[in-house]
Simulated assay, not measured.
Amino acid sequence: MQAYRLLTDEDTSAFCHKVTAALNKGWELYGSPSYAYDHATGRMRCAQAVVKQAEGDYSADVKLGEL
């Protein structure tokens, strides 16, 4: 199965650590990162899509963060 996740967080080192952790678990970057202003919090937010080939068939019960 091909798995997809969109990682998001505020523009802090925590976001970089989240992406780095995913890469070290075998996820691959998919496309360019995004950067946008969150009016509700008054902070910048980052997003990065990642993909991964995984065993099994997809279902809505798959916990993508555990792949």
Rank of each mutant, 00 (worst) to 15 (best):
M1F: 11
Q2C: 01
Q2T: 13
Q2M: 14
Y4P: 00
Y4S: 11
R5F: 07
R5W: 03
L6N: 09
L7A: 11
L7Y: 10
T8Y: 00
T8S: 04
D9R: 02
D9W: 01
E10C: 07
E10S: 12
D11G: 03
T12W: 05
T12E: 12
S13W: 09
A14N: 15
F15R: 04
F15S: 06
C16E: 09
C16P: 00
K18M: 05
V19Y: 07
V19T: 09
T20L: 11
T20C: 14
A21Y: 12
A21R: 15
A21Q: 14
A21V: 10
A21G: 11
A22F: 03
A22I: 01
L23P: 03
L23C: 12
L23H: 08
N24F: 08
N24C: 12
G26N: 09
G26D: 11
G26M: 10
W27Q: 01
W27E: 04
W27A: 00
E28S: 14
E28Y: 09
E28W: 03
L29T: 13
L29D: 06
L29A: 06
L29R: 13
Y30W: 10
Y30E: 08
G31V: 03
S32D: 13
S32M: 13
S32L: 14
S32K: 12
P33M: 06
P33Q: 08
P33H: 10
S34P: 04
S34G: 15
Y35R: 08
Y35P: 00
Y35M: 11
A36K: 10
Y37W: 14
Y37H: 13
Y37V: 02
D38M: 07
D38N: 15
D38H: 11
H39Q: 14
H39I: 10
H39C: 08
H39P: 11
A40F: 05
T41D: 04
T41H: 07
G42S: 06
R43K: 14
R43G: 01
R43F: 06
M44D: 11
M44G: 06
M44Y: 14
M44H: 10
R45W: 03
R45S: 07
R45I: 13
R45H: 09
R45M: 10
C46M: 15
C46T: 00
C46R: 10
C46Y: 10
A47D: 01
Q48L: 02
Q48K: 04
Q48I: 03
A49N: 06
A49V: 09
A49R: 06
A49W: 02
A49D: 04
V50S: 00
V50L: 15
V50D: 00
V51F: 01
V51Q: 10
V51D: 04
V51I: 14
K52I: 03
K52P: 02
Q53E: 12
Q53T: 09
Q53M: 04
A54D: 03
A54K: 02
E55L: 05
E55C: 05
E55D: 15
E55R: 07
G56Q: 03
G56T: 02
D57Y: 04
D57R: 10
S59A: 09
S59C: 09
S59V: 04
A60W: 07
A60G: 12
D61R: 13
D61I: 12
D61F: 12
D61T: 15
D61M: 13
V62T: 05
K63G: 01
K63P: 00
L64T: 11
L64Y: 05
L64G: 00
L64P: 00
L64D: 02
G65P: 04
G65K: 04
